[in-house]
Simulated scan of single mutants.
Amino acid sequence: MRVELESVPCRAAGDADLPSALERARRGDEDAFRVLYRAVQPGLCRYLRVLVGQDAEDVASEAWLQITRDLTSFRGDLAGFRAWTATIGRHRALDHLRHRRRRPVADAPAEWFPERAAPDDTASAAIEATTTDAALALIATLPRDQAEAVVLRAVVGLDAKAAAAVLGKRPGAVRTAAYRGLRTLADRLGGQV
């Protein structure tokens, strides 16, 4: 199956009949795959942003290549699909971090890149991105197990059992890590809310 995917920024997509779209996508329906991609990509991107920072879009692209390749072999419901995509994304993120440690990258100055006008409402996108980035940056200050548990439960929307499968932990450990992470965030934001 060859599907052209446009870049979907980290924002919510409208829900369609996702369980039906999953079944149709497994059978090769490209339109159904697009529906799934638009529904799952924002949460996956936010999760990956906690793990790899600004490289989240690149890692998500690698994850979607594997998801597309292996979709016909996936068995499960929509919640299982979300957990499966998060697991693949996590594996690609860990690969990316190992690669980056072996071959560090130098940043390039902005002057090296030509300016182009944005096709959408740049101001709204910037405000949304800044708010999302700030929230994810705050979550990223938590210990890694708590940060991953919070993002998988609160942002990606996985239940404790599915998040536990992604992280290779017991559901109780995931619930505890998410609870502790959310309590820490609440304490840090105590005077700012």
Rank of each mutant, 00 (worst) to 15 (best):
L5E: 02
L5S: 13
L5G: 11
P9K: 09
R11P: 05
R11F: 09
A12R: 14
A13K: 04
G14Y: 06
G14W: 08
D15C: 04
D17V: 14
L18C: 12
A21R: 04
R24E: 08
R24F: 07
R24P: 01
A25R: 00
A25K: 00
R26K: 15
R26G: 11
R27S: 13
G28D: 03
D29L: 04
E30L: 03
D31K: 03
D31L: 00
A32F: 05
F33T: 01
V35M: 13
Y37R: 10
Y37W: 08
R38Q: 09
R38T: 05
V40P: 00
Q41M: 14
P42I: 02
L44T: 07
R46C: 06
Y47K: 02
R49H: 07
V52D: 07
V52E: 06
V52G: 09
E57I: 06
D58W: 09
V59Y: 13
A60C: 14
A60F: 07
E62V: 00
W64L: 07
L65E: 12
Q66A: 09
Q66L: 08
T68E: 10
L71F: 08
T72M: 06
S73R: 13
F74S: 03
F74D: 07
G80A: 10
W84P: 08
W84Q: 02
L97H: 07
R98Y: 08
R98T: 14
R98H: 15
R100Q: 13
R102A: 13
D107N: 04
P109L: 14
A110D: 15
W112K: 12
R116V: 12
P119W: 09
S124K: 13
A125L: 15
E128A: 13
T131V: 10
A134T: 04
A134R: 14
A137I: 00
A137P: 00
L138H: 11
L138P: 06
I139R: 12
I139F: 13
P143S: 12
Q146H: 06
A147Y: 09
E148C: 10
A149D: 02
V150F: 08
A154Y: 00
A154L: 10
L158Y: 06
D159R: 01
A160Q: 01
A163V: 00
A165K: 05
V166P: 08
V166Q: 08
R170L: 12
P171I: 00
P171N: 01
G172Y: 06
G172A: 09
A173F: 02
A173W: 00
A177E: 01
A178G: 03
Y179T: 12
R183W: 00
R183F: 01
T184S: 11
A186H: 11
A186C: 01
G190L: 15
